[in-house]
């Protein structure tokens, strides 16, 4: 297990290194400089600014400097807000994104499990049909469409929730709902399929033959066996939430990294885009690592070999 963990962490670092390298050189290919959006400046002023951003040095030196900085969490200075280091910009914005993202994930997965399990237990009844409809709709309706609808109907028309502000928990409800819909649908669908499979397996039959009640069979045998594989889709769900957050945070004016990403893209704020790319892949790598380890812990068949495959 320790060996496996060490190997995985090595790969994580390697991956991040490659991500940083590739983004850095991609950004060097990009047209425009921090001064593109500025008014005319004198040559000496330009030189000064270049020096300030380290753009006067050869590219390989810039790369090494950037790499050294990135290890310490220093991603340079934002083009857009010239007085702000990217790391400060991001650290002040990551909180709301994490909160909404986690809330959406937890809500989506828990409700998804309940709906999916109910569907499987009442296979081929109206409950099952509802499960299918909910999951297919959740997968098919883009989160930004849902966000606008929620904002308008629950926020503006009914006035239950604030529309586009950031403050306490109440402000997170609508964005959480908008972001949680897809994870909810995906996990409901996943759990239903898994559980239908599990319920028709021999060991469930044996559990019934032991004299366990219906709920006993579900609770002691079916649930655990259908939920363990759910861990494998947490990674993809995290990607989904990250992607969705870019638009949803915009719609609800949440000062998160998703909103910042879009803003940076629209203003060609390359250092911030790079910093965000690295942050996003770091978060995703960590999620994938955690889910892999977790899977190994909860599934006895993998625990022994120590390799998730």
């Amino acid at each position: 297990m320790a060996k496996y963990l060490a190997k995985r962490i090595f790969y994580l670092i390697l991956t991040l290194f490659i991500v940083i390298t590739v983004t850095f050189f991609l950004m060097k290919l990009l047209p425009g400089t921090p001064l593109t959006n500025q008014a005319k400046l004198s040559k000496s002023q330009i030189a000064l600014i270049y020096q300030q951003y380290g753009l006067d040095k050869p590219v390989w030196q810039q790369y090494l400097l950037y790499l050294a900085g990135a290890v310490k969490g220093n991603f340079g200075t934002s083009f857009q807000f010239s007085d702000q280091p990217v790391s400060y910009l991001l650290s002040s914005r990551i909180g709301p994104s994490l909160q909404i993202g986690l809330q959406a994930m937890i809500l989506g997965v828990i409700v998804g499990i309940i709906i999916g399990a109910l569907g499987a237990m009442r296979q081929n009844t109206w409950v099952d049909t509802t499960t299918t409809v909910v999951s297919i709709l959740g997968i098919s309706i883009p989160s930004f469409v849902l966000a606008v609808l929620l904002q308008y109907y629950l926020g503006l028309k009914l006035g239950w929730f604030p529309i586009a502000e950031w403050g306490g928990f109440i402000y997170t409800v609508l964005p959480t709902l908008a972001l949680g819909a897809t994870p909810l649908a995906e996990s409901a669908r996943f759990v239903r399929t898994e559980m239908v499979d599990v319920l028709s397996s021999d060991y469930i039959e044996l559990a019934k033959a032991k004299g366990l009640s219906r709920m006993g069979v579900i609770y002691h045998h079916a649930l655990r066996n259908s939920l363990i594989p759910l861990i494998t889709i947490v990674g993809p769900l995290a990607v989904n939430i990250m992607t969705g957050s870019m638009v949803v945070e915009n719609i609800f004016s949440i000062p998160g990294i998703g909103e910042q990403f879009v803003k940076s893209v629209l203003t060609n704020d390359y250092p911030t885009i790079m910093g965000l790319t690295i942050i996003y892949s770091f978060m995703l790598c960590v999620v994938l690592l955690i889910t892999d380890i977790l899977y190994g812990i909860v599934d006895p068949r993998i625990r022994i070999t120590g390799k998730a495959n």
Partner: peptide, 8 residues
């Protein structure tokens, strides 16, 4: 490739 969100 999978360790960077697609949209990014």
């Amino acid at each position: 490739i999978l360790s960077i969100p697609n949209l990014v």
